[in-house]
Each structure stands twice: as structure tokens, then as C-alpha cells.
């Protein structure tokens, strides 16, 4: 659906994007993750045709974006991080204004404007001037604008950042719903829990470079940590020393009844560790391989990038 190759963008001397490449499949949710200033918004602004870029190729729906911009842009909806409107308009007027630019049938659009406002829960405030809206309300109105003319690709830049916890959950549910409608979603966020919940593919960007692009399931497999958390019924005390003698165990952290076993080879450990524990003279209440959250993975990858 979207293919980006060697995209470069610099603001004067500052290189915002250092030759990034990635691909987004049709109907998937592509999670674009990075800290503030990593280049997320820059990338989205380029892909929505709002700013120019220095080098590289962009293909959307198989077509060269630069050459077919006016045509391709019709199938794109964009929710910017801090949406701006004409504050003297009300929500109805603004949506009609955008509808006129897109060229929707006006009768059809005025009907769907009401509907759109209902979907984003602004129907009651639709006749109030946008200038008096809260950030959350503006965010929802922006979503309505992005949805106009049912786009095939949606770019969502930090869609949940301005919303209250309830609104955030609603936003995530909405994104999950859109996924079922086969809409391709390009989602940038720094809230990793959100990304973990809705994304199919994760792309980590830092300082204008892409550090990794992987399916979420693959990611968990690759970045599984060689740590086993075991909990005993009673304080194991010197039982643990027996484990420490094993050559494939690197170290053990003790914390009362709970211990964390760091191993050298996770696959070998998986098959051996239960046998060894069962030899101990104590009862086990829980045992698990520690799962990396996206947050752990992100921190590891990004901190590695800093060292380089």
C-alpha cells in the first residue's frame, strides 16, 4: 500500500530523516514508534504531501506519490498531532468547508456531516465555535475531518495524546474497528502500550533512522529475554546455591520467595530448568519466562543506538 525507499529530509543542516525505507501492507496497522523529535511527524507530513523531501521514492497504491499527488491524496486521511482549524467556524461549517474542497456531493455531505459529528461525539457542540473547544474536542473533530470521504489510508499522529483515559480507550477501539474495515492505518505514537494493543507491524525510529521494522509477534520472539521468574512456597535459602553451580545459568537474583534466573542459552534452559527445579527440596508456586514488553524492547534498541 505504502512503500518508502531511501527517504531523506533535512531542515538546513539538521538531518531529520536519514534515508529511511519501509513498507506498509494493505489493511494493516503500522505502528511508527519513537521518542519526540525522532522524525515521526516529519515522515507523516511528507507522506501526506504537506512538506517536501530531499531524496527518495514514495509509492502509494503502487503509484509514484510525487507524480500522482493530487489523485492519491484523495484516498488519504490525516489526523495531525495538534490539529488547527479556522477558529471562527463551528464544526458543521468546518466539515462542510472541507467537504467542498474534497468535492463531496454537498447534499450527501451535509447529511453525513451530522453523522460524522455523531460518530466523534460532537453532535451537541457542533454549532459552537471551534475556538472554544478543548484539545480533546479538537482531536475528535480532526478525526472527523480525517474520516471524510472514507479514505483508504489513514495517518494518525499521536491520536490519543490529547485524550482523557476514556477517550484513549475509545480511540483504540475505533482503530481496531477500522482494521476490520480493511483500512490501512499508519499510526505514530510514543505510548507503547497502545501500539502493542493495535499494531500488526512495528517500526522503531530514532534520530531519523529506522532501527527496526518487524511484525509484533516476530518482535516478541526475537526479543524474548533469557530470564525465568520462579516463585517458591517458602524462602528457598541455600537451595538456590545448587542452581548457581549449573554452567548454563549466568546468575540468579534472589528476592525472598521469588528468584529470577538469568540463563546463557534460552532454548537449552527451557528444556532443562524445570528438571533442575524439581530436584530441589521445595515447592514451586509459579514459573514463567519473562515476556518483554514493547517498552523493554524499545528501550533496549534505542539505548543501543545511542551507544553507537
Amino acid at each position: 500500500m505504502i512503500k518508502v525507499a531511501n527517504l531523506r529530509k533535512s531542515y538546513g543542516r539538521l538531518e531529520a530523516l536519514k534515508s529511511i525505507s519501509f513498507e506498509v501492507e494493505k489493511g494493516s496497522v503500522f505502528g511508527f514508534i519513537g521518542r519526540n523529535g525522532a522524525g515521526k511527524t516529519t515522515t507523516m507530513n511528507i507522506l501526506t504531501g504537506l512538506i517536501r523531501f530531499n531524496e527518495g521514492k514514495i509509492f502509494i497504491k503502487g503509484k509514484d506519490f510525487l507524480k500522482n499527488k493530487q489523485e492519491l491524496i484523495k484516498s488519504i486521511g490525516y489526523l495531525p498531532e495538534t490539529p488547527t482549524f479556522y477558529n471562527y467556524m463551528n464544526a458543521y461549517e468546518y466539515l462542510n468547508f472541507v467537504g467542498e474542497i474534497i468535492g463531496c456531493d454537498l447534499k450527501k455531505s451535509s447529511k453525513s456531516v451530522g453523522k460524522l459529528l455523531e460518530t466523534v461525539k460532537l453532535a451537541k457542540q457542533g454549532k459552537r465555535r471551534i475556538g472554544g473547544y478543548s484539545r480533546g474536542m479538537k482531536q475528535r473533530l480532526a478525526l472527523a475531518v480525517a474520516f471524510m470521504n472514507s479514505p483508504e489510508i489513514l495517518f494518525l499522529d499521536e491520536p490519543a495524546s490529547a485524550l482523557d483515559p476514556e477517550g484513549r480507550v475509545e480511540m483504540l477501539e475505533l482503530i481496531e474497528g477500522l482494521k476490520d474495515d480493511k483500512i490501512t492505518i499508519f499510526l505514530s505514537t510514543h505510548i507503547l502500550n497502545d501500539a502493542e494493543r493495535v499494531c500488526d507491524k512495528i517500526c522503531i525510529i530514532d534520530e531519523g533512522k529506522i532501527l527496526l521494522t518487524k511484525n509484533l509477534s516476530q518482535l516478541h520472539e526475537t526479543y524474548i529475554q533469557p530470564i525465568f521468574d520462579v516463585e517458591f512456597e517458602e524462602d528457598p535459602k541455600n537451595e538456590v546455591d545448587l542452581l548457581k553451580k549449573l554452567s548454563w545459568i549466568e546468575s540468579i537474583k534472589e528476592n525472598g520467595r521469588r528468584i529470577s534466573i538469568y540463563v546463557k542459552d534460552i532454548d537449552y534452559a527451557k528444556s532443562e530448568i524445570l528438571k533442575e527445579i524439581s530436584k530441589l527440596n521445595t515447592n514451586v508456586t509459579s514459573y514463567q519466562i519473562r515476556k518483554s514488553t514493547l517498552e523493554d524492547i524499545f528501550m533496549r534498541i534505542v539505548s543501543k543506538n545511542e551507544i553507537i
Binding site: T82, T84, N87, Y88, R129, G131, G132, R135
Partner: peptide, 10 residues
């Protein structure tokens, strides 16, 4: 220039 809402964004 005196009216706040029109000049600022948020």
C-alpha cells in the same frame, strides 16, 4: 490585534 481567540491556536 486585541482578541485572543483569533490569534492563538489553543
Amino acid at each position: 490585534i486585541g482578541k485572543k481567540k483569533e490569534i492563538e491556536n489553543d
